[in-house]
């Protein structure tokens, strides 16, 4: 795998959540790189970091543009259980399934909350980096990340309680059909 191709594909995958969409976004990112490459200056930082920044910006743009199927997340928490039933350190397959489920839920909370959570919890951006990238104050970033994580917990509880269907491939197919 190329030094940049796979990282870029994985950046795209985090934003798109499906391999097919990640392929398309990766192609878009490489096209964008061709367009902006003359603007690269080595004095501004390492090429790899610069390419990842371009890829992330493209991912954010893609994430904002695509169609969404928002959930109506209940304000009231679902009845408490002693132990969260949906996560425990079992097999990779279970963790992958849970990861896909939570990633699907991320697409269904408010975008202004989802974007900073995605950048923080999936891309490991620092709070100041997120503030710079999204053009919002640092305090707003912190608040939105907390609210976004809280919304994910509520959404996950709702799925566990059977109040909402699991987000899945249907939503992805709908997005592609809309595009």
């Amino acid at each position: 795998m190329g030094r940049f191709r796979q990282p870029i594909w994985h950046i795209a995958y985090r934003f798109t959540a499906t391999p097919d969409d990640a392929d398309e976004l990766t192609q878009d990112i490489f096209m964008r790189l061709l367009t902006v490459l003359p603007a690269y200056r080595p004095s501004g930082g390492a090429l790899g970091a610069w390419i990842r920044r371009v890829a992330t910006n493209a991912g954010i743009d893609h994430y904002r543009k695509r169609a969404r199927t928002p959930l109506t997340i209940p304000e009231e928490d679902a009845p408490e259980t002693r132990v969260p039933v949906w996560w425990s350190p079992e097999s990779i397959a279970e963790r992958r399934e849970e990861a896909a489920l939570v990633r699907g839920l991320l697409d269904q909370i408010q975008p202004e909350l989802a974007e900073p959570v995605l950048l923080r919890d999936m891309m490991d951006f620092s709070y100041p980096e997120i503030a710079e990238r999204l053009g919002i104050p640092l305090g707003t970033v912190k608040s939105r990340i907390h609210r976004g994580r809280r919304a994910l917990v509520r959404a996950r509880r709702a799925v566990a309680a059977g109040k909402h269907p699991k987000p899945g491939r249907a939503a992805s197919r709908r997005r592609r059909a809309i595009r």
Partner: peptide, 12 residues
């Protein structure tokens, strides 16, 4: 669980 799931999504 949420935090780990989001991290797992990229790792897996």
């Amino acid at each position: 669980g949420i935090h780990r799931a989001l991290a797992d999504f990229g790792d897996t």
